[in-house]
Amino acid sequence: MPLRYILKQLVLPPGGLLLLLLVGWWLRRRSPRVAAACFVLGFAGLWLLSLPITVEWAARALEREPALAEVEWAGLAQRADAIVVLGSGREKDDPAWGGDQPSALAVERLRYAARLAKVSGLPVLTSGGLHYGQPPSEAALMAQVLARDFGVTVRWQEGLSRTTWENASYSADMLREAGIKRVVLVTQAGHMPRSRWSFERVGFTVIPAPVGFLGVPNARPLGGWLPESKAVWQSGMLLNEAVGLLAYPLVYR
């Protein structure tokens, strides 16, 4: 897990682009032309990925599943057997809460899952492993938040997964025992294509319930053409999903 994490940070922005700039600096005397190309690509890449308009355009290409219409929520009990909400990391030792907490993205998913659960009456499974290699798991943290803050009791906790594929396969192991074959899947809109593919691959019928859409008008000054630090992070997430969509069918056959 640490090696995978390190490689991921080195390849995805801004790590990969900073490495490109470093290579350009290292080659500035040995090969000025190659160094110049590295500098141009590195700076251009950082600038492009820091633009909210880039995030908006990229997200539109990835966010394939439409939002679940509110009029459909009550009827989910006839179309599905359970709600599965995927983890998205955790924050370590937050002093305000006296311990680890789900990330902001995870809380966004939990809020939506709680609303769907209350309207539909479907049972909930939380999925997410040991983000820092030690307990509590993401699944346990999410279950606590759902119970304490949203009044929703979680029936199943899948606390071993480290990847989206493992979210699907380990959840399948638990839900098959309960006869669950149809799930409402809650995750970020950009993460939904890879997540849906994984859950369908292990045998589920999936009703997508995406949240956190980024492919909407960015509402930034000058239409989103000014650099913004948040956009670099969002661009990295979207690029990770694009790579995952290409890699998963090759790795998980």
Rank of each mutant, 00 (worst) to 15 (best):
M1A: 14
Y5C: 04
L7E: 03
K8P: 02
Q9L: 15
V11F: 14
V11N: 11
L12A: 11
P14A: 06
G15Y: 14
L17A: 07
L17Y: 10
L18K: 09
L19R: 04
L27K: 07
R30L: 09
P32E: 13
R33I: 10
L41I: 00
L48Q: 07
L49H: 01
I53T: 07
T54I: 05
E56R: 06
A58N: 00
A58T: 07
E65T: 01
P66S: 08
P66C: 10
P66R: 04
L68C: 01
E70I: 04
W73P: 00
W73N: 01
A74G: 05
R79A: 09
R79C: 04
D81S: 03
A82Y: 13
I83A: 12
G89L: 02
D93R: 07
D94N: 14
G99C: 06
P102S: 10
E108V: 05
R109V: 05
R109N: 12
L110E: 12
L110F: 08
L110W: 12
Y112V: 02
A113G: 05
R115G: 11
L130E: 06
Y132C: 06
Q134E: 13
E138T: 13
E138N: 11
L146V: 10
L146P: 07
A147L: 12
D149E: 13
F150I: 02
G151M: 03
V154H: 05
W156V: 12
G159C: 14
S171P: 06
M174N: 07
A178T: 04
I180H: 09
V183I: 15
T187L: 01
Q188H: 14
Q188M: 09
Q188R: 09
H191M: 00
W197M: 10
E200N: 12
V202Q: 14
P210K: 03
V211T: 14
G212P: 01
G212Q: 06
V216C: 04
N218D: 11
G224M: 07
L226K: 00
E228I: 06
S229I: 11
V232F: 09
V232C: 07
W233V: 14
M237D: 11
L239G: 05
N240F: 03
Y248H: 12
P249S: 05
L250S: 03
V251F: 14
